[in-house]
Deep mutational scan, measured.
Amino acid sequence: TVKFKYKGEEKQVDISKIKKVWRVGKMISFTYDEGGGKTGRGAVSEKDAPKELLQ
């Protein structure tokens, strides 16, 4: 599970739902399947990112 803040809201998403991951400076950005055909997005700092996300 990845915990992150998006627009001031605390969120979390299961690693299995993450589609795409990329690095922006010291942040790790990602998109994930929100269900219902929607794609969500989020970002975590490199130090807070789970190891599975960095692979």
Rank of each mutant, 00 (worst) to 15 (best):
Q12V: 15
K26E: 14
I15R: 03
V13Q: 01
R23C: 04
Q55P: 06
E52T: 08
T31Y: 10
P50E: 02
G8Q: 04
G35M: 06
G35D: 09
E9F: 10
G25L: 03
V21P: 01
I15E: 02
T39G: 04
L53G: 01
K5A: 07
K26F: 10
V24H: 15
K5G: 05
K38S: 08
A49Y: 04
Y6C: 06
S16D: 10
G8W: 03
E46G: 06
R23L: 06
T1V: 15
S29H: 15
T31G: 02
K26R: 10
V44Q: 01
D48T: 08
P50W: 03
K47F: 11
A43H: 14
K47T: 11
K20W: 08
E52R: 08
V13D: 00
E10L: 15
G42M: 03
E10D: 14
G40E: 06
V24K: 10
D33I: 08
E10C: 09
K11A: 04
R23Y: 07
F30L: 01
G8D: 08
K26G: 12
I15P: 03
T39M: 15
K7D: 08
G40P: 02
K3G: 04
L53D: 01
I18M: 05
A49I: 05
F30T: 00
D48V: 09
A49V: 05
G37E: 05
A43N: 11
V21F: 07
R41G: 03
K3Q: 09
E46H: 09
G37S: 06
G42I: 03
K26C: 07
R23G: 03
K26D: 12
I18R: 00
R23S: 05
S29I: 13
G25D: 06
E46A: 13
A43Q: 15
Q12E: 15
E9P: 02
K20R: 12
G8T: 05
K17L: 13
F30H: 00
K7P: 01
K19S: 06
G35N: 04
K7I: 03
Y32K: 00
A43T: 15
V2E: 00
G8M: 04
E34V: 11
G35K: 05
K19P: 01
V2R: 01
V2Y: 02
F30W: 01
S29V: 13
R23A: 05
I28G: 00
A49K: 01
E10Y: 14
G35E: 08
K7M: 11
S29N: 15
L53T: 01
T39N: 05
Q12F: 12
G37C: 04
D14W: 08
T39V: 15
F30K: 00
T39W: 13
Y32E: 00
K38Q: 10
S45D: 15
P50M: 04
D48I: 10
P50G: 04
R23K: 10
K19M: 13
L54K: 08
L53I: 07
G35I: 05
S45Q: 13
S45K: 12
I28C: 02
G40Y: 06
G37N: 07
V44A: 02
K3I: 13
V44L: 10
A49H: 01
K7S: 06
Q12R: 11
G40C: 05
I28R: 00
G40F: 07
R23D: 01
S45N: 15
K11C: 05
V13S: 02
K47G: 11
V13Y: 02
R23M: 07
R41M: 13
K38G: 07
S45G: 07
D14Y: 09
K26Q: 13
L53C: 03
G40D: 03
F30I: 02
K51W: 15
R23N: 04
K51A: 13
K19R: 12
K11V: 11
D48W: 11
Q55M: 15
K11I: 14
S29T: 12
S45H: 15
Q12G: 04
I28N: 00
G8N: 09
I18V: 09
M27T: 09
K38T: 08
